[in-house]
């Protein structure tokens, strides 16, 4: 998937992946896509809830080899 900006949140546990995603999204334009990588299993639900709460669309949420990858579109 194409993306405009990337955030490496590996090794971080909550609340940091969400806080840093929020900060990064704020620096982006509407419609741009952010890719986030994380190793915290708790981040799956966090990103789903964060998308629902903020209205930024979660385009995909996948896991491979213990790393989680999210694509989020800035509203």
């Amino acid at each position: 998937m194409n993306f405009d900006k990337e955030l490496d949140a590996r090794g971080l546990n909550c609340p940091l992946p969400i806080l840093r995603a929020k900060k990064t999204l704020a620096e982006m334009q509407s419609g741009e896509v952010l890719r986030v990588t994380s190793t915290d299993p708790g981040s799956v639900k966090d990103f789903a809830a964060f998308a629902k709460q903020t209205g930024n669309e979660l385009l995909s949420s996948t896991e491979s080899n213990k790393e989680f990858e999210y694509f989020m579109k800035r509203k």
Binding site: A9, R10, G11, L12, P15, L19, K23, T39, K66, E67
Partner: peptide, 24 residues
């Protein structure tokens, strides 16, 4: 605490690089 943590995100640059993930 949350406000302070946000402040650090803006002002602290050191030590943010994630180490390599240890794969099982």
């Amino acid at each position: 605490g949350l406000k302070s943590l946000l402040w650090t995100l803006e002002h602290v640059e050191w030590g943010m690089q994630a180490p390599r993930t240890l794969h099982v």
